[in-house]
């Protein structure tokens, strides 16, 4: 080794107070911090997230599956639960949020009691599905994918193809299919489906 080169640890000269690392800051790994919140301190959302996370390896590839289950559970993704997922999977929150907003399967706002899904597949489109969306927007006063009707009963969504092209145009409310729909039947359908 040449005299002109110093190793980084070489700064630690015994006689150099100025460069001496202070106690407690010796570069040694800090002891693991105790989990700041005991289970009882967790909110419902965090507990739900923990329950779901228990079934998956705590790594990035699990993210989408975990969010799927959370979304199934709440019908949307509560921010607290998302923070918990980010923390536990070690995925930065920005990335979690990015994934949650990228995929259509996830909702970042609460949904109405029932979701009206209008199929906008090609077959439905050529048979007039666009008019159904317009009519639903008018009668529910909601935008597809956002918010819910004033009474909180319905959310509106458009989907690309539910794979029931033979019955086009198709509207789904919950798990019920409404085949060969026309704008004129929307009112009847909503009345029939109205949640108790």
């Amino acid at each position: 080794m040449s005299p002109r080169r110093a190793k980084k640890t070489d700064v630690d000269l015994d006689n150099t107070e100025a460069l001496e690392p202070s106690a407690g800051d010796t570069g040694a790994k800090a002891p693991p911090r105790p989990n700041k919140s005991r289970p009882s301190d967790l909110s419902d959302e965090e507990r739900a997230a923990d329950e779901i996370l228990a079934h998956y390896p705590l790594a990035e590839p699990s993210l989408i599956m975990v969010l799927q289950e959370l979304n199934d559970h709440y019908q949307w993704l509560p921010p607290k639960a998302l923070l918990r997922v980010s923390e536990k999977l070690g995925v930065p929150f920005g990335k979690v949020q990015g994934v949650a907003t990228f995929y259509k399967a996830f909702s970042l706002e609460p949904k109405g009691k029932k979701t009206v899904k209008v199929c906008l597949g090609t077959a439905c489109h050529v048979r007039g599905a666009g008019m159904l969306v317009d009519e639903l927007k008018r009668s529910l006063k909601v935008e597809p994918g956002h918010g819910m009707s004033e009474d909180g009963d319905y959310s509106l969504e458009t989907v690309n193809c539910v794979g029931a092209c033979a019955m086009a145009p198709v509207v789904m409310v919950g798990d019920n299919y409404y085949a060969n729909m026309a704008p004129g039947n929307i009112g009847k359908m909503l009345k029939k489906e109205k949640p108790a």
Partner: peptide, 25 residues
């Protein structure tokens, strides 16, 4: 089995793989 997140672009193979890695497709 991995359930897609509802993104047409994930039918594109490289986007699908990103999705399987838990990333944006």
């Amino acid at each position: 089995i991995s359930r897609g997140g509802g993104a047409f672009v994930c039918g594109e193979s490289s986007a699908l793989m990103r999705s399987l890695e838990g990333k944006v497709g």
